[in-house]
Design a protein around this nucleic acid. Structure first.
Length: 105
DNA sequence: TTACTGACCTTTT
DNA sequence: AAAAAGGCCAGTA
């Protein structure tokens, strides 16, 4: 598999996400060096979550919603996030203000 | 090599 | 405010 520099950065960033915190695709893509490669982040997750055992459940959409389809693992992600202390509102969204991981700066 | 796909994001109706 | 369309990049076939 072609692990580009971008991919490795994404993987490392995902691994850097603290327990009980979430991050967005765009955020990771931006930190990885490509603000517009957010879509690719998801692809990398799919490729490595199994092999690298990455916390893919901590990666969500910018709106605070889970982007994945229900039959793909929506329930599992929600459960995993709840186990980390993250709560969902009535609309199934996450409070970004509280849980969004803001890396350094 | 080109073509198609995708767990997105931004801008425009 | 909500919904639709376009654009972007990297990876796989």
């Amino acid at each position: 598999m072609a692990r580009s520099e971008f991919s490795e950065k994404v993987i490392e960033l995902i691994r850097s996400v603290p327990h009980g915190r979430v991050c967005t695709y765009g955020q990771i893509a931006l930190m990885a060096g490509n603000p517009k490669a957010a879509r690719q982040v998801s692809y990398i997750l799919h490729s490595c979550s199994k092999k690298e055992n990455l916390p893919w459940h901590r990666i969500i959409g910018k709106s605070g919603k889970i982007s994945i389809k229900q039959f793909e693992g929506y329930e599992m992600q929600k459960h995993l996030l709840e186990c980390e202390g993250i709560e969902f509102d009535l609309n199934g969204k996450i409070n970004m203000k509280l849980y969004l991981w803001n890396p350094a700066k």
